[in-house]
Design a protein around this nucleic acid. Structure first.
Length: 426
RNA sequence: GGAGAGAUGGCUGAGCGGCCGAAAGCGCUGGAUUGCUAAUCCAGUGAGUCUCGUAAGAGGCUCCACGAGUUCGAAUCUCGUUCUCUCCGCCA
C-alpha cells in the first residue's frame, strides 16, 4: 500500500505508474473521498472537543439543574458524534479499498511495458548443454527412473499434486541443504515457518486470500490460509513491530511448503512439476532501512546469492529485469532467474526458477512494521525484500533435464552429491 | 480438550468511572559536576491524525491487545474475538 498523502501529492506520477503497470484506478474518486474524510474528521474532532468540555463540567456543576442540563447536552452530542463517525467509517473503508488497489511505485530503471515480453535480459551465465541425442523432458526422465508418481498424487489430492520418490526425494533434501548452507553463509538466519497464516498477514504481504482470482487455499471456518510462500510468514513475523534503525538490515531465510491454487492457469499448466499446487521452497527475506539505497543494495545481494546458487549447480540461466506490467502490486523492482530447461516447449526454453523483489515500504505499511531512528522524530516504515533461494520443483526440472546423459542416466550436480549419496541416477 | 491468570509507552511495571496520555524505573538525548571509558545530579524523552503556518512551530482529536456495548464521561464496568502464561488431560 502506498501512503495516501504521497498519492495525493504525486497524482501524476502515480497515474503514470498505474498506466505503465496496466492497472486502472480512479484517482479522482480517491481525492473526493479524501476531502470528505478530512471534513468528517474536523467535524468529529470539534464535536468531541465540545463533549469533553461538557462532561468535564458535570462534576463542577453548581446545582442539580445545571448538571441535568449538561447531561442532556452530552447525550445530544453523543448522538451527533455517533452519526458522523459512522459516515466517516464508510468513507474510509472505500478509500482504503481504492488505496490498496494502487500498486507500488517503480524503480526508474525498470523496463516499461505491459507484458512479460517487455522484460529485459540483463545478463546470462553458462551455456546451454549440447546433447548429441534427443533429450527427454523431466516427465519422461522421471518415469524412466521412477522418480515422480503423478497418478498417486492425482488419486490422493487431485491434478497438480505428486509424490517424489527415490533419488528425487534425495535431490529435494539436498537442494534444501545446499540452499540453506548458501544463505546462512551469506548472513541469513534460517527458519522453518508455519505453513498457514492469518488472512490479514496474507493481505499485508499483498496476497488476496479470497475471491475469484485468488492463488490461495483458505481453510474453511477460520481466517487461516495455506501459505503460497514463506515470504508471507517471514514478513508477517514482524507485523506491528518496531525496529531500531541500527539493527537493520535483518536477513532471514525460511523453509516452507508453498500451496497455490493456480486458478485460471490450468490451460497452460502443462506437464510435470513446473506448475503444481504444492512445492517446497527456501526463501530469503530482508528488512532494511527505509531508503532505496539500502534496499537496492540488499536486492543486489539477494540476486547475487541466487546466481551463486545456480552457478554452483552448473545451470545455465539468464537474469530478467521484470517489466512494469508484470511486477505485481508490491514490487518496486523484480529480478527473475530463468534457467535453461531443455525439455520445456519445443527444443527447450527458459523457465523461471527464482524471483527477487524489492517491495520498498509497500508491504511494511500494511503490516505496520516500522523503525526508529534515534536521531529523528517519529518512525518510518522499513523496506522489505524477498527472493527465492531454491524452489525445489523448478530446480529439479532444470537439474534432471540438463544433467541427462547419452546413456540415459542423470548426473547429480557435484555440489549435491554429498547429500544425495551418489553421483548419478541410473 | 478442561480450569484459572493476564495483555498498559522502545523495555519493565503502577493505575479509585471524571484531577490519566497515563506513576515509577530502565533505556535514550542534552546539560552540570568529578583529575582520568565509570559514578552522581538536573532537564527532556510515545505514536497516529487533522487544522493553521513558507517554515521553525502552535493547537485540536484519537490511541492503555482488537471489536462491540453501558455512561454526560471508560485504561478502569459488560460482552465477544485474538494472543500469552500456569495447572490438568491427551498426543508425535
Amino acid at each position: 500500500m502506498l501512503d495516501l498523502q504521497y498519492i495525493l501529492d504525486n497524482r501524476e506520477a502515480v497515474q503514470q505508474n498505474c498506466d505503465n503497470r496496466g492497472i486502472t484506478v480512479s484517482l479522482d474518486r480517491l481525492t473526493e473521498l479524501d476531502s470528505a474524510r478530512r471534513l468528517h474528521i474536523q467535524e468529529g474532532d470539534e464535536l468531541r472537543r465540545q463533549q469533553k468540555e461538557t462532561s468535564g463540567g458535570i462534576p463542577k456543576a453548581k446545582d442539580n439543574d445545571e448538571r441535568q442540563q449538561l447531561i442532556a447536552k452530552g447525550k445530544e452530542l453523543r448522538e451527533q458524534i455517533g452519526a458522523i463517525e459512522a459516515k466517516q467509517k464508510e468513507i474510509e473503508a472505500e478509500l482504503r479499498t481504492l488505496q490498496a488497489d494502487i500498486p507500488n511505485m517503480t524503480h526508474p530503471a525498470a523496463p516499461v511495458g505491459k507484458t512479460e515480453d517487455d522484460s529485459q535480459v540483463v545478463r546470462t551465465w553458462g551455456e546451454k548443454p549440447n546433447f548429441d541425442f534427443e533429450p527427454l523432458d523431466h516427465v519422461a526422465l522421471a518415469e524412466k527412473h521412477n522418480l515422480i508418481d503423478f497418478e498417486a498424487g492425482g488419486r490422493v489430492a487431485g491434478h497438480g499434486f505428486y509424490y517424489l520418490k527415490n533419488e528425487a526425494v534425495m535431490l529435494e533434501l539436498a537442494l534444501i541443504q545446499y540452499a540453506v548452507e548458501k544463505v546462512r553463509a551469506a548472513g541469513f538466519s534460517i527458519h522453518t515457518t508455519p505453513d498457514l497464516a492469518r488472512n490479514d498477514v496474507l493481505e499485508g504481504i499483498g496476497f488476496n486470500p479470497r475471491g475469484n482470482e485468488t492463488q490461495i487455499y483458505s481453510v474453511e471456518n477460520s481466517d487461516l490460509s495455506l501459505v503460497a510462500t514463506a515470504e508471507i510468514t517471514l514478513g508477517g513475523a514482524e507485523k506491528d513491530q518496531m525496529m531500531d534503525l541500527d539493527q537493520l538490515p535483518i536477513l532471514r531465510a525460511g523453509i516452507s511448503h508453498c500451496f497455490r491454487t493456480e486458478a485460471g492457469a490450468h490451460g497452460r499448466a502443462g506437464r510435470g512439476i513446473y506448475r503444481v499446487h504444492q512445492f517446497t521452497k527456501v526463501e530469503m527475506f530482508a528488512f532494511t532501512a527505509p531508503e532505496s539505497t539500502a534496499s537496492d543494495e540488499v536486492h543486489a545481494k539477494i540476486v547475487g546469492i541466487e546466481e551463486e546458487i545456480f552457478q554452483g549447480l552448473g545451470l545455465h540461466y539468464q537474469v530478467i529485469d521484470t517489466a512494469t506490467g508484470d511486477l505485481g502490486g508490491p514490487a518496486y523492482r523484480k529480478y527473475d532467474l530463468e534457467a535453461w530447461m531443455p525439455g520445456r516447449g519445443e527444443g527447450g526454453s527458459y523457465g523461471e526458477v527464482t524471483s527477487a523483489s524489492n517491495c520498498t515500504d509497500y508491504q511494511a505499511r500494511r503490516l505496520n512494521i516500522r523503525c526508529k531512528n534515534p536521531n529523528e522524530k517519529g518512525t518510518k516504515f522499513v523496506h522489505t525484500l524477498n527472493g527465492t533461494a531454491v524452489a525445489v520443483t523448478r530446480a529439479l526440472i532444470a537439474i534432471l533435464e540438463n544433467y541427462q546423459q547419452a546413456d540415459g542416466s542423470i548426473k547429480i550436480p557435484e555440489v549435491l552429491q554429498k547429500w544425495v549419496g551418489q553421483d548419478k541416477i541410473g
